[in-house]
């Protein structure tokens, strides 16, 4: 148990540092940044205490917010995907999830990418809705969601391939 807490803490800190020190400064084509920290929420273990998980998602988003002076936009987006994750899991993995035996390293690769796509797009949509905070700019919001989303999904998939331990 302690081992799990330790490894998740390390993952939390490393993802925050990578996000604020490297990824937030990419600004590809002006303003496109990947938000890799979402992978922490996506790949959190499935049989968890939902209250703790929700709170952790919020804390992760808020930490990114403090670093980037953005109020509460990352916190709102993170806590939302933390909340709807069970629904998305059920939708993407179906029966495997029902039996609570899901392990991210041995699920179907296609389903896993589909799962990343849904989570990342919802996260980015809420993120940019809150950041721009103006519904009349909805086209700009959708554009940013799409471009940043593609970037994030690519990075999430690559990261999960590199760091998945084959047994």
């Amino acid at each position: 148990m302690n081992n799990i807490i330790f490894s998740y803490s390390i993952r939390f800190i490393v993802l925050v540092l990578v996000q604020v020190l490297i990824l937030n400064q990419i600004n590809f084509l002006g303003s496109i940044n990947p938000y890799l920290y979402v992978i922490f929420i996506c790949l959190f273990q499935v049989n968890n205490n939902r209250m703790v998980f929700l709170f952790l998602s919020f804390l992760l988003g808020l930490t990114i917010d403090v670093f980037s002076d953005s109020g509460g936009v990352h916190a709102a987006a993170s806590v939302t995907i933390g909340f709807i994750r069970p629904v998305v899991l059920k939708f993407c993995f179906g029966s495997v999830y029902e039996h609570q035996t899901i392990k991210f390293k041995n699920v179907d690769f296609g389903a896993k990418i589909f799962y990343f796509i849904i989570m990342v797009l919802i996260h980015h949509l809420i993120l940019f809705l809150f950041e721009i905070f103006n519904l009349s700019e909805i086209l700009l919001i959708l554009k940013k969601t799409l471009f940043s989303g593609i970037f994030t999904i690519l990075l999430c998939v690559v990261t999960s391939i590199i760091f998945s331990r084959k047994t």
Binding site: L54, F58, L62, S70, G71, G72, A75, V79, F130, F133
Partner: peptide, 22 residues
């Protein structure tokens, strides 16, 4: 409904922070 209520509470906090930053 404790999970949903916690979600609403955290979302409310995040919204307040966002509005303040605007």
């Amino acid at each position: 409904n404790k999970v949903f209520l916690l979600y609403l509470f955290l979302m409310f906090l995040a919204t307040v922070f966002t509005i303040q930053s605007h």
